[in-house]
Design a binder for these strands. Structure first.
Length: 487
RNA sequence: GGCGUCAUCGUCUAAUGGUUAGGACAUCAGGUUUUCAUCCUGGUAAUCGGGGUUCGAUUCCCCGUGGCGCUACCA
């Protein structure tokens, strides 16, 4: 049987990094096994509908490099398209299908109409809590006469449809991550399958869709584990084969709490905008809860597709550690060619209002390789290159125990010396300058420190020769001149 | 409260019924260096607690503790 996994988010805003991991594992598992990776949109909650939510989900997935084989995808113009013959892949477009299947359940006595008001339900729960009983529906409408109930429905009475959970026995979830997990059926609620507004709940819709769409492996967040017995019972009621379930643990923050917006960045979009590379993001997230076993930890998506193995996915929740992400990002930025890095930085230059047509851009961003952790940081850190007049205190030009006069003198001599250099490339400038300093019997710092500050205006910056060659001879001399004047 | 689940350095993790419990990030110290960063070398740092089983347990079992999830006509 051909393996098929799916990612099925609710389009309620932006893709959470935890969601990205779920999608990534589903994707990797499918790729590893030559299977199909499908995307479906679960929008059965009308109240939580967000305009553009679906587009956001797809965009984030594509940014990360995950390609969708079937289901919802993005067209040429950024529009939502659907591909595959098991559609539609958007649940709100499948209402008739769900209606048909619940009807079947009702007819076979596996589901029933429930007319209980919200008030009554609340009352019941309050009592249960008060008596320290397990909470849940008390089965008030469970044994209503079907014909009677149908009559009430006909008269327009509000109703929901609930599944009739078995009252005895246990349901065993055989989970790919956790092994066998057992639930007592009597403690599992008679879940609502169809809401008063006629929409199915998640529980009905996933089961019907995963079956009809021939999903073989249901990989999702750990929060679904407790409702899996309901899903398994539904499969049984329909007489359908069970898929494999795999429940992934959660991503948490340093305080061991759920990653939430209140505590910082959580959406893939956030990280994209901060200047994280998708390659770094994917590598980092893949390693949160999975590890191939060796000591290598830089993996491209293609390598992950080869190596991914569900038996090595582990159970504990993983802390989303920003420091490690930064390290990964730095590694990936260093590995990029200067030209590619410049290209990736483009939107960040624009954001801070930088002229981007400079043909030396590749050389300029290269200054920050290994220094900055994000693309945004690069853009921010190289602005001094473009500045016409640097602002800094004259004291900054003075190295350690040196003096104003000394710094001034060194810069003057340096300017004269630079004027004589014909071949203004990095190797040459550095080489001849260093030997010139040696000839003079000075310390490197005596000259190089004021030079670097004159060129950067900063306490910390790339090296003086790197800056000088990026700047060009003319601008270099100009900045040295300005520094001399400042002193 | 009930049900479920999880537990190796601060963090991500490796390993095994017998190891000096390994690596990476972070951190600390040293080196390289004009600064910061990079790079190199070295260091600190972990098997949640209590019982079993066993010659031996961090590993297997039980109990406890703590964290987390679910307990909606949300997903």
């Amino acid at each position: 049987m051909n393996i098929k996994t799916r990612f099925a988010p609710s389009p309620t805003g932006f893709l959470h990094v935890g969601g990205l991991r779920t999608a990534l594992y589903s994707y990797l598992f499918a790729r590893k096994n030559n299977g199909v990776f499908m995307m479906r949109i679960e929008d059965t909650d009308q109240e939580r509908f967000v305009e553009g939510g679906t587009e956001n989900m797809i965009r984030s997935l594509k940014w990360a490099g995950l390609s969708i084989d079937e289901g919802v995808d993005m067209g040429e113009e950024g529009n939502v398209i659907q591909k595959g013959d098991k559609g539609p892949y958007i649940q709100s477009q499948r209402l008739d299908i769900y209606k048909k299947y619940v009807q079947e359940l009702v007819e076979q006595g596996h589901a029933y109409y429930c007319f209980c008001s919200k008030e009554r339900l609340e009352e019941v729960r309050k009592n249960q809590e008060l008596n320290k009983m397990p909470t849940g529906y008390d089965g008030h409408c469970r044994d209503l006469d079907v014909a009677e109930a149908q009559k009430r429905v006909m008269t327009g009475e509000k109703y929901v449809i609930r599944m009739k959970m078995p009252k005895t026995g246990t349901t065993v979830v055989d989970d790919m991550v956790r092994g066998k997990v057992e639930f007592k059926n009597e403690l599992v609620d008679d879940q609502v399958l169809v809401k008063a507004d006629g929409f199915p709940t998640y529980h009905l819709a996933v089961v019907v869709d995963d079956h009809l769409m021939e999903v073989t492996h249901v990989i999702r967040g750990e929060e679904w584990l407790p409702s899996t017995p309901k899903h398994i019972q539904l499969y049984k009621m329909f007489g359908w084969d069970l898929p494999q379930f795999g429940h992934l643990s959660m991503l948490i923050n340093e305080q061991k709490q759920k990653l939430s917006k209140r505590h910082g960045d959580v959406s893939v979009e956030d990280f994209k905008q901060k200047g994280y590379l998708p390659e770094a993001m994917v590598n980092f997230i893949a390693f949160l809860g999975w590890n191939p076993g060796g000591e290598k930890e830089i993996f491209s998506l293609a390598e992950l597709e080869k190596e991914f193995d569900f038996s090595k996915v582990h159970k504990p929740a993983a802390v989303f550690n920003r420091e490690k992400l930064n390290w990964y990002n730095k590694q990936y930025m260093m590995a990029l060619s200067d030209e590619e890095l410049a290209k990736r930085c483009e939107s960040f230059f624009i954001q801070i209002g930088l002229q981007t047509s400079d043909f030396r851009l590749a050389n300029i961003v290269a200054l920050e390789k290994g220094r900055s952790s994000t693309l945004a940081e690069i853009a921010e850190n190289i602005t001094f290159i473009f500045s016409d007049k640097l602002k800094y205190e004259s004291e900054l030009l003075v190295w350690k125990k040196s003096t104003h006069e000394d710094a001034k003198q060194k810069l003057k001599e340096l300017a004269l010396f630079f004027a004589t250099i014909g071949d203004w490339n990095r190797e040459n400038v550095e080489q001849v300058t260093l030997s010139w300093i040696k000839e003079k019997g000075w310390g490197n710092g005596d000259v190089l420190w004021p030079m670097r500050v004159a060129l950067s205006g900063q306490k910390n910056s790339p090296g003086p020769f790197e800056i000088a060659t990026v700047l060009g001879k003319e601008k270099t001399l100009d900045r040295i001149q300005k520094a001399i004047e400042l002193l």
